[in-house]
Design a protein around this nucleic acid. Structure first.
Lengths: 147, 147
DNA sequence: TTTACCGTAACAATCTTTGTGACAAATCCA
DNA sequence: TGGATTTGTCACAAAGATTGTTACGGTAAA
């Protein structure tokens, strides 16, 4: 399992917070605590799905390609091409095993259904929603935190 | 991502097919095409969740602890303690990043919801259902397959 | 034409999962 | 009781996936 979805939502939230400006990969990497190449690698998927635009020159960087409210989490998931919540095991069943033969097909149906259900759930939440939610939860500053 | 869920359902289907007999780890491993230790490692979770029983001696092996129709796929998922379809990224956000602070909490809510939805979907299907489905899909024998 | 970016390939480092061997513990059966 | 069978689990190797890093080419703005 990977954490690209979380990373993507994090980045999209940052972009949503400053819809006017282009943010550089370097800046995003700093904010999140990783490397700029990791950001670019990930953003390639989001760009392909028309969720963000990039510009590669001085003053360049990343922007949302549309309002944050119009980017659902399901779109993000689809963009990342990670539409499998459960994975098939890939051992070859013994040829005499009658269950093994049909099981993959049966499981395939189940997994397809699960993925549909996930997308329905994620389809109801937008990046704007997540950002708003995150901002209401900002931790109290250090000063007031003691004792 | 791992494929333990698929493996578990496969094994449970095999046990469901012969509710009277105890099947050994060795036999299950052969049927599925893996190692007996892998089976035991996995079954430890299912046993802890009271889905199967084991007996360690001559004539021993594994059996379902209840009828296959009473084992939902959601129970299997819970038993495997894999209740996270999406994973948090664990980079420390930069302290000045106001989004980063609250984002984990916001994502946590989202992920919790997704997991709930998955369990609802899997709760409606039993091992007996999967087995029945698998058996209707048995591939045609080699002979009739050609041309 | 220099500068500040992105794009991507290549490779290293890390983490996770799966496979394997070894051996103790439990239980059955003669 | 003793031997055979099977689980339970540890330890470690192998394989695979993900993430981090360096390097370098391309592109557009100033």
């Amino acid at each position: 399992m990977n954490s690209r979805f979380s990373l993507a939502v994090h980045i999209l939230s940052l972009l949503a917070q400053q819809p006017e400006d282009r943010l550089t990969s370097e800046f995003l990497a700093m904010s999140i605590g990783t490397n700029a190449v990791v950001i670019r690698r990930l953003m390639a998927y989001l760009r392909k799905a028309d969720l963000v635009t990039s510009k590669g020159a001085a003053g360049g960087g990343w922007m949302l390609a549309r309002p944050a409210a119009k980017i659902s989490l399901a779109m993000v998931r689809v963009a990342l091409e990670e539409e499998v919540a459960l994975r098939m095991h890939k051992n070859r069943p013994h040829p005499d095993c009658s269950v093994g033969q049909g099981l993959n097909d049966a499981l395939g149906l189940v997994y397809g259904h699960v993925d549909t259900v996930i997308d329905e759930a994620l389809g109801q939440m937008s990046v704007a929603d997540v950002l708003a939610d995150a901002l209401t939860k900002v931790r109290v500053p250090e000063k007031t935190k003691r004792t």
